[in-house]
């Protein structure tokens, strides 16, 4: 990264005509985008071959700010859209950048099946515990007893454990960091981008406007301070222990790193063997 006095070092990978972005003060999505951009630049990838797909929601807007081939699709369908892109051109590095509601709730089915097929995607799931774009409704990741505008007496639904879901569905790389663990998050994104197969990086991110306001948790900076004090790094922790309780300790780290053949590899193997078999039978 070349740093200059008059230009922000990330400007080359941002659509500067759209900055300032729409995210609220104290939101962690911008920080996650920074981590992603730094990861891309550290990897020295060919940026023409990287493509970002987003769904709908606050994090869904990421695609609109990153200066790569980028797609802002329908709610929850970022993963199948990205699957199509990857199948259409396996040379591309396809990154799905979306939120917890988009990926785990409406796109939950696609998440599970893309992980099962092991499509070569990097999924960055920004988890802010709430549907923020629509005004703070209860999300599949809202911790028990947390208030939202649609759970005014406290949430009573058991939240999803994203790393466990990813692991059991077959993801090859699973990590979780908060928006404060910015360097570790960057390293994880680098590893996820290099890993062939379905890799998931969950980012716990503060939502200052909806989640923390209705729960009286202060500003974004107070949420960050909470992460600072309450997050515990435990690499390779069994994913069933990774549930997040309301204002309790958050376990972060790298949990899964395993090898499995990707969909494209298996498909190409099948094509080659079938082609050989067919040409033999022709003779």
């Amino acid at each position: 990264m070349i740093k200059k006095e008059d230009h922000h070092p990330m400007e080359s990978l941002l659509r500067m005509d759209r900055i300032p972005h729409i995210w609220c003060p104290g939101c962690g999505i911008g920080t996650t985008v920074t981590a992603f951009i730094v990861a891309l630049e550290k990897l020295k990838l060919d940026f023409n071959k990287v493509c970002v797909v987003s769904g709908i929601g606050c994090t869904g807007r990421v695609a609109g700010y990153i200066n790569l081939d980028s797609f802002h699709t329908t709610h929850g369908r970022a993963i199948p859209f990205a699957t199509g892109i990857k199948l259409g051109n396996p040379e591309l590095k396809v990154v799905v950048f979306s939120g917890d509601g988009d990926l785990i709730s409406i796109g939950g089915n696609h998440f599970i099946h893309a992980a099962r097929r092991n499509i070569d995607l990097t999924v960055i799931c920004v988890n802010n515990f709430i549907y923020a774009m629509t005004g703070g409704q209860v999300a599949p990741t809202t911790p028990l007893t947390a208030y939202t505008t649609t759970s005014p007496y406290g949430n009573f639904e058991l939240p999803s454990n994203v790393p466990q879901l990813a692991e059991s569905a077959g993801a090859v790389y699973v990590a979780r960091w908060t928006a404060l663990h910015i360097r570790r998050l960057t390293n994880s994104i680098i590893e996820a981008l290099q890993k062939p197969g379905f890799s998931v990086v969950e980012v716990i991110s503060p939502c200052a406007m909806y989640y923390s306001r209705i729960n009286r948790l202060g500003d974004g900076i107070d949420m960050m301070k909470f992460y600072h004090e309450n997050s515990v790094i435990k690499h390779n922790e069994p994913t069933e222990n990774l549930d997040i309780d309301y204002q309790k300790e958050i376990i972060v780290g790298k949990f899964i790193n395993r090898e499995r053949p990707t969909f494209t590899d298996s498909y190409n193997d099948w094509l080659v063997t079938e082609k050989k078999a067919q040409s033999k039978s022709m003779i």
Partner: peptide, 21 residues
């Protein structure tokens, strides 16, 4: 590719179309 439902089937088709296929 057999997708998990028709929603994702057409989503994948749209994605693939943008790669020129």
């Amino acid at each position: 590719i057999q997708m998990e439902d028709e929603i994702s089937a057409l989503a994948a088709v749209l994605g693939a179309s943008w790669t020129g296929k």
